[in-house]
Amino acid sequence: MATETAAADHGAEGGGLVFHPMDQFIVKPLFGEGEVHWYTITNVTLWMALAVLAVFALMVMMTSRRATIPTKGQSIAEMAYGFVYKMVEDVAGKDAVPFFPYVMTLFMFIVFANFLGLLPMSFTTTSHFAVTVVLALAVFLTVTIYGFMKNGAHFLNLFWVSSAPLPLRPILAVIELISYFVRPVSHSIRLAGNVMAGHAVIKVFAGFAAIAIISPVSIVAITAMYGLEVLVAFIQAYVFTILTCVYLKDALHPGH
């Protein structure tokens, strides 16, 4: 949302409505101008570091007293722990518990990146396909590699629907195979798409605020969208995590 004022300025200069809803997603070097190399410290670095710090603050600093009767902060940390732990156990099964820290990492990163992205002027790291594709591919590769390691060739039973009539099975196998490889695509685009769309819509409403008559409507609309975005921020983190658990279940129990 870094360009809110910039967009307003543009509108004032041009005398009309100028929207820059996507400017908030631009990756910029944090210090000075110039090329963005892979090692450059950018706004991505800043907001990811803040997410790491937020995770550290909640999960480590809030629990430092290890109180049997928890404080508010410790309760939140414990709720997050219980929420994801139960999800892993219920969806992926008891034997998926070794993956719990991994799933927890994904959940905590996404949920904090989403919520930090809702701060005005912030940069939303999870709105970038570069980020979500890596997250989704990591899950995809983990599931595929672990599935083959644990089950060997039996992992291919995932595509061979033994409960279907025999003539249908090859067709189903093709469909299952395609759906399997579409998983990382949908997994990543769902998260980035939702976050990006919401932020862009807010910015478009903000652009309309340049017209005095419309601005109250615009502000109400921004407020409403913001409320929706708060929901989306959590729900998308939840969806990403639960889909990870569903995919892990396939790796652990490939039979239908």
Binding site: V44, A51, F56, M59, P101, F109, L135
Partner: peptide, 22 residues
């Protein structure tokens, strides 16, 4: 750039969670 910093961030969170918090 994003992938580089993402991997560092994820590694940091994983380390924090798996070694200390969880």
């Amino acid at each position: 750039n994003q992938i580089f910093w993402l991997i560092i961030a994820l590694a940091a969170i994983y380390f924090i969670l798996s070694r200390v918090a969880l």
